[in-house]
Design a protein around this nucleic acid. Structure first.
Length: 430
RNA sequence: GGAGAGGUGGCAGAGCGGUUGAAUGCGGCGGUCUUGAAAACCGCUGAACCUUUGCGGGUUCCGUGGGUUCGAAUCCCACCCUCUCCUCCA
């Protein structure tokens, strides 16, 4: 959620950002109009209440309270009617009311883009910031991961479809073990870099989901239990970011760095026909997520460090990748700035997203109310939140299968993972 | 799922329906004292929003939402959550 004060004071900045995202900026004027209407309604309400409080207070101090109450009755009745009138008006306009038009507009307004975000409407305009590693030269034709996996017996798409339908995978033998090894490896590295490991709930309340900005009104991306009103997390970013919601942290406690392994559940409703083969796009996948809570002035420097933490994992796995600065049109609702890490997939002859690292500035912190105090006498301020995958486990498995495949159909195990697999250096079957 | 207890400020813990945004203690901040520190003593110490150039003024908040009343932390109703016991269960 944007700061309404920023919209009031610097509407041009909001318009500019919205335009860069490809939105019609006229909603800004609508917000300004509704906001000023709301505030005048609020002033009317508060004045009437102040007067009523004054009269009531006088009754409380009178010697004969009953008589005083009787005398004041006509005046108080009139005030009560006034208050009721203003109250209805203010409530209908208030950004706090879940069905007010102002709230709807604010809810639908994405974060302000950072000036460093490149212009552009879609991923073709993303800017490659750096590239690491050299794609391996194969002396045979590299197979896609689903072929490798099925032939080795580590991936089973048919049985997954039997159990659950499309976009699910059964991992078998070394496939399952490698997945577990990756989770362990990522978490160990995160711990070494100062992240506190969290094992969060995988189901969260509507309020939690809303507070981190995942629950935009038109989003049907999530699985949910409508009875209990719980949502299956689409990423551990949700519980990790909301962990300190409605809290005021001590300034000394920042930055806070958290890492969590979790399954992630996504409907992928808008992706029909995309990545239908293999485990690139699944309804259920695993991920280690990294989240930072920082002081406002530190968040952009922290984004570089967060991205670097994720990159290090790819370097240790010796997987070639590149880093893309997402353009305005490709940057998500919550983010002021995002880097995508894209890993090389030889079968596709393409770099594919394996991590997304974003600085959400105060956008999520405002909704979730995550604040800190600079010093004991200071006022609470909103923290900045950042999140990034470190890394997506399924896609890392894809990258390993494809990049480490051999002509005989076997797959070598990256050196850093071997200790997690009892020293196994090569996968020759499940 | 059944029974009971409870939800008040950073924490602990009071609170006859009327200057109670809330006693008291702890913690925190500032000061006195001290070579320094501790102790002791004194003072200050919740949040959001509206308004004001500023000083300030106002409204709201004691789990949430309703209700009674001129007036509610205090009375009534519903809901949520936590804890204890039982039941069940990985």
């Amino acid at each position: 959620m944007l700061d309404i004060v920023v919209v009031r004071r610097d509407p041009d900045r909001v318009r500019r950002s919205a335009k860069r995202r490809g939105l019609d900026p006229s909603f800004v004027d609508e917000i300004l109009r509704l906001d000023s209407e709301y505030r005048s309604a609020l002033a009317g309400l508060e004045n009437a209440k102040a007067e009523k409080n004054l009269v009531s207070g006088r009754i409380g101090k009178a010697a004969d309270k009953a008589a005083a109450a009787r005398d004041a009755k006509p005046q108080l009745d009139a005030l009560a009617a006034q208050i009721a009138h203003h109250e209805a008006l203010a409530k209908a306009l208030s950004p706090e009311s879940s069905d007010s038009p102002l709230r709807e507009l604010l809810d639908g307004t994405p974060n302000l883009l950072d000036d460093s975000v490149p212009d552009g409407s879609d991923e073709d305009a993303n800017v490659i910031v750096r590239t690491w590693g050299t794609p391996r030269a194969f002396d045979f034709s590299p197979k896609p991961h689903w072929e490798i996996g099925e032939e080795l017996g580590v991936l089973d798409f048919e049985r997954a479809a039997k159990l659950s339908g499309s976009r699910f995978t059964v991992l078998r033998g070394m496939g399952a073990r490698l997945t577990r090894a990756l989770a362990q490896f990522f978490l160990d590295r995160a711990a070494a870099r100062g992240y506190v490991e969290i094992s969060p709930p995988y189901l969260v309340s509507r309020e939690t989901m809303w507070s981190t900005g995942q629950l935009s009104k038109f989003s049907d991306a999530m699985f949910q239990d409508s009875g209990a009103d719980l949502f299956m997390i689409p990423t551990a970013e949700v519980p990790l970011t909301a962990l300190h919601g409605k809290e005021i942290l001590a300034g000394d406690d920042l930055p806070r760095k958290y890492a969590a392994y979790s399954p992630c559940f996504r409907k992928e409703a808008g992706a029909a026909g995309k990545d239908t083969r293999g485990l690139i796009r699944q309804h259920q996948f695993e991920k280690v997520e990294l989240v930072w809570l920082t002081r406002p002035e530190d968040s952009f420097a922290s984004l570089e460090r967060l991205a670097n933490d994720a990159e290090t994992l790819l370097q240790e796995l010796e997987l070639p990748y590149r880093v893309a600065a997402l353009c305005a049109g490709d940057t998500g609702f919550n983010a002021a700035k995002t880097y995508d890490l894209e890993v090389w997939l030889p079968a596709q002859q393409a770099y594919r997203e394996i991590s997304s690292c974003s600085n959400c500035t105060d956008f999520q912190a405002r909704r979730a109310s995550i604040r800190f105090r600079r010093d004991a006498s200071g006022k609470p301020e909103l923290v900045h939140t950042l999140n990034g995958s470190g890394l997506a486990i399924g896609r890392t498995l894809v990258a390993i299968l494809e990049n480490y495949q051999e002509a005989d159909g076997s797959v070598r195990v990256p050196a850093v993972l071997q200790p997690y697999l009892g020293g196994t250096g090569r996968i020759t079957g499940a």
